[in-house]
Structures are given as C-alpha cells and as structure tokens.
Amino acid sequence: MRALFRFEFLAGLVLLTLVGGAVALSPWLFPDSGKTMDFLARLTPPFVNEAHWLGTDPMGRDILERVVVGGKISFIVGIFSALGAVTLGTVIGLLAGYYRGFWDSFLMRFADIQLALPFILLAITVIAIIGPGLDRIVILMIVAQWVQYARLVRASVLSLREAEYVQAAKSYGLPDRKIIFGHILPNAMGPLIILATLNVANNILLESSLTFLGLGIDPLTPSWGGMLADGRNYIQTAPWITIFPGLAIMFTVLGLNLLGDWLRDYLDPLGKTNT
C-alpha cells in the first residue's frame, strides 16, 4: 500500500491524468479537431488574444486546440508501437533464450538483420514505395523495434536460466510454461518496462523526425511531432508553435517514465524487500 504514495507514482499519475485527460476529452472540447484556419489571425503570439490563448500557427490555427487534439496521434504512435514491439519482442526473446538451439539461431539471425537496417533509412525507402500514413508508421516502428526487446529478454533469460532457483525449479519437474512465466519473465520485467516507457517517448519524437524528413502524416491532422517539425522554420519568429507541443511531450514523457519506474519497483520481487 505504501508504494501507492511514492513520489514517482503520484507525480506520474498527476501528469499523465492531466495530459491524457485533456486528450481524451478533446472530441468534446474541440469538435473541429484543430483544423479551422484563420489567415487574418496567423502567427498570433500567446496570451494576447482570448480566442487564441496559446497563440496560432502560420495557418492561423489555434495552438491550444492543436496541442490537445494532436495528443491523440502522438499517443497512438507512441503507445501502440511500444505495445506491439514489446509483445512481439518478449515472446521471441523468451522462446529463443529458453530453448536455445535452432530456434534461437533462427530468430536471432532475423533480429540481426533487423538491427543492421537503420530505421530512418528503412522508413524513407518503405514510405517512398507505399506512401505515408499513420498505420504504416506504427507498423514500421514495431518491425524496427521488436528486436530490442527480444534481445533484452533473451539476455535476461540466458542469465536467469542458469540461476540456482531456476535450476532448482527445473529439477523439481516444473513445466517450461510455469518456469518461463512464473520465474523468468517476472525477473526480466524491470529492464523491459524501462525500455518500453523510454520507447514510447522515443517514438513520439521519431514521428517528429519523420515529419522533419518529409515522411510524416498529412499536415492537416495535428500531432505533437508534426507541430514541432513544421514549426522549426518559425523557431525564431514564433517560438510558441514549438514550445507548447514540446511541453506536452515533456509532461507525457515524464509522467510515463515515472510511472514506469514505479511499476518496475512494484513488480520487482527483490526490490520490494529493499525499499
């Protein structure tokens, strides 16, 4: 129970609730999804016009609206890509690490091939062929990132597999399934959670890099990454275009990672005795 009142948990929860809540309510708060343009009000600075409290972008669109609505795309990109990659990577990593032999070699060569292709170059080539789109970006990220989890899990499994308590469990005749999910996976969870929460943040930013390279989703649909990339030409004259989505990303990253840290401690069977 004490764990619920830890700094990480409270701070993380508050930040995520604020950002996530606003984003979740955006369809009711801003029914036109931040798409209305007003060329007469373009590049309005923040805090001077009540209609545009956080200012406007070069299209005269309201920054507050676009930040709140844009969170949706950023959350989808960040969370779905991380979830997909964690699931795929964990399963493959567990199989390869625990059974070793042929499947290990086979899956790890797959992983090597994937690792040896730099993501950005892969993305540029693939998007040039099939065209841009939200679904494609998420799938590309999963394809590019499952390897990280697979190798991390495999490394933990390799190490834990030889650990005394796993050897002991084996000698008692526990089935593989129980050993994997009862003993090995919980012990591999710590770094996994940290990596996953890191990657949610990374992928929100990666979407920004893709827009920077001209491979983003269409610019009418707001996203934090897109706002940062498109706003870069205005950093000097209209910094508010990039500052507010930047802050939104920062709060999300902080909140997610604080919660991730807390969860890691909460799940870590040995860590609990120590706090």
Partner: peptide, 20 residues
C-alpha cells in the same frame, strides 16, 4: 494546407497527400 481551407469554404472536403 491553406488551399484546403478555401475549398472547405465552398463545401468541398479537401484532403492532402504529400508525396516523396
């Protein structure tokens, strides 16, 4: 992007497709 706003004005729902 600005074009879509003008087209919206006359009742057309304009989409954009940026292409490499």
């Amino acid at each position: 992007q600005a074009m879509t706003s003008f087209l919206q004005n006359v009742g057309l729902n304009a989409k954009l497709k940026p292409i490499e």
